[in-house]
Design a protein around this nucleic acid. Sequence first.
DNA 1: TTCATACCCGTTTTT
DNA 2: CGGGTATGAA
Length: 704
Amino acid sequence: MRYRLDYAKELNPAQLEAVRTLWGPVLVIAGAGSGKTRTLVYRVARLVEEGVPPERILLLTFTRKAAREMLRRAALILDEQCERVAGGTFHSLAHIMLRQYGHLVGYSRNFTVLDRGDAEDAINLLRTALGLAEKRRRFPRKETIAAIFSKAINKRLSLEEVVREEYPHFLEELEELAKLFEHYVRYKQEHQLMDYDDLLVNWFRVLKSFPEVRREVGRRFEFIMVDEYQDTNALQAEIVRLMAEEHGNVMVVGDDSQSIYAFRGANFKNILEFPKLFPHTKIIKLEENYRSTQPILDLANAVIEHAREKYTKCLFTRREGGRLPLLYKARDEADQSRFVAERILELREEGVPLREIAVLFRSAYHSFDLELELAKRNLPFVKHGGLKLIETAHIKDVVAHLRLLLNPFDMLAWNRVLLLIEGVGPKTSGKIMDYLRQSPDPLAALTGFPARASYAEGLRQLSDLLVSLRKEASPEEKLNQLYRYYEPIFTRIYYDDYPKRAKDLEQLLAIANKYETLEDFLADLALEPPEASVAEVEGLENEDEKLVLSTVHSAKGLEWHSVFVISLAEGRFPSSYALGREEEIEEERRLFYVAVTRAKENLFLTYPATYYAPAEGRIFSKPSRFLEEVKEKIEEWRPQDLSFWEEEAVEEPSSGFRPGELVWHPVFGEGKVKRMADIDKVVVQFASAGEKTLHLKFARLERL
DNA sequence: TTCATACCCGTTTTT
DNA sequence: CGGGTATGAA
């Protein structure tokens, strides 16, 4: 057969073998930057060239964006047929399949997907109902309970095993937890709700218990590919096994040294166990790195060299030259931010586009200081990771109304919606819900509730709204109408900061207009939550000309010309949260490995000698242990001109107040500045009012 | 029901 | 330190 693409020319021998092996199970162990994505893209093209209908190919990836991107690339090199390949995350696939097969496990096609916050709300509701919230000081908080439940599901362990292993201090509560779990499962079942884990569990149950579905699905997806296999969990591995049972045509691709999702139940050993799940698996290793320069790879290899676990490969490159990774030891966060901003400006001078530069950090809030600095210098950026739009209270309020239109038995949404009405509290809300539950059409039944005069009007308005929203209209129109209803409520409950929150509502509206149906809109909101952050500085001319700020987790699979990894201090990276247990430190180390292997040409590492910790204020820090381990692979940044330090040392803090200065405040009168408490906060000792911490953004402080 | 207060806790990553 | 939560009073 003649192919339109010259595979042998485009791929190295290992990649080529992976692309040409179409039948049977294949495990590809692909080091960072070894052309893993390229291999998958070419394999999709190859399958299509072989005449496999694109709908018969399934590509499972970690985010839906990743799937879209790969299929777009396949379409680019071959033809647009490739875009018809089925692609997405395990969760989005399960969601689609359960709309079709959910009835087999007791779900109608309009079930609601709960995000983590909704799940916690439900758990909280049940916990209170079971009387587990009272005086029992020792009972875990809702977040912890949700985490325990989720771990058990994803790792396929019993509650007891999870508690014993990771939460031994709650062992006494095991019985109560088990009872709560039972109630939680039943509650979701009864109200047509599924949390993230249920999507996987129920899809698994369908596959497991219904061989005919298994066969049907096997015929539908004749070739399965799974990317980032090191970040799948036991349940997902089972799902793959069942879906591929019919034909065994499954290729999984991953890198055990890049596994960074153990916290949500992922198990990198899945990779090593894959050949046991599928006998006669062909194993292919991709070890040649095409991304980074040798000095960067040397550093990466040294990082992973210190890992407890011995990983399976060693990266090499044929690229020559390249600069040593640079370490800058900053005095504090402000200094760190200044350093980063200056280097970015220099890089831009050298012709590196902003979108080819990324700043990576362990936790979303680590970039706050830098964001201020970038805004000050008019450097446009986008930020990935951190707070999701959907996690804010006002967006949840709005979405709850929409959820009712699809699933009128979604009592979680009812509760939220009812509590917004003035005069309705938990008690009344409960009574109304008991009433609605009895009705076959709760939306229409709302007017029939014998309401007390104090809130009758509010209830009537809600009822009118819901009935009217139910009529044919685009998600965007529905949302517009909803906003008219919500506005007075919105300004009442968020009176202190609703202007800020209003921006989110606008953003939601902008997202909604991309959707034809409410169903798709809501499903995507839950399965692919849009990020909350809006860049502070909009790009002046080109939208794409933005610097990238990202958590390391959100940077997985991506690469940039120049990468900064900031806040490499003990407690920050590795996170203080991980300091206790060895496995967690190991995961932090892999996370650092992922961070450094994102860089193609330049890698800058920074460490602030002091930083602000939420509870303790300014603290002195130690350099990250990961830096100490690989010292000899790094060059320390030395300012050419020493006076640079001295100048900086006496420079005023950006707000302009210095200890000892006399100031005047309109309420507290005269005072003396003690110190800066933060970039925009100052501690002042007042003659009359004592010591106060003032927010410079609000306080009208004048120099005397 | 709502408001005020006291207190507790925990700082992370994401589908 | 600040936010959320539980508790108690009006």
